[in-house]
């Protein structure tokens, strides 16, 4: 169950980052760069949120 959640976070954040990158740019290079940048930011934000939730649930 935990594996599915982690894989889902990675996959869905990629989908969001990629579609937004595709909408914003036209050239493949710009799309890939924008996607990677957004994807990493999104994953980092989700990890932070997950850590905060985990911390708060133990208080």
């Amino acid at each position: 169950m935990g594996t599915i959640n982690i894989v889902s976070i990675i996959y869905l954040s990629f989908v969001v980052a990629f579609i937004l990158g595709l909408n914003d740019h036209d050239t493949p290079r710009k799309i890939i760069r924008a996607t990677l940048r957004r994807w990493l930011k999104l994953l980092a934000a989700l990890v932070v949120i997950g850590a905060v939730v985990l911390l708060l649930s133990h208080i």
Partner: peptide, 9 residues
């Protein structure tokens, strides 16, 4: 997520 991304597109 699929629905939201299609709205954006």
């Amino acid at each position: 997520v699929s629905g939201a991304m299609n709205y954006f597109s």
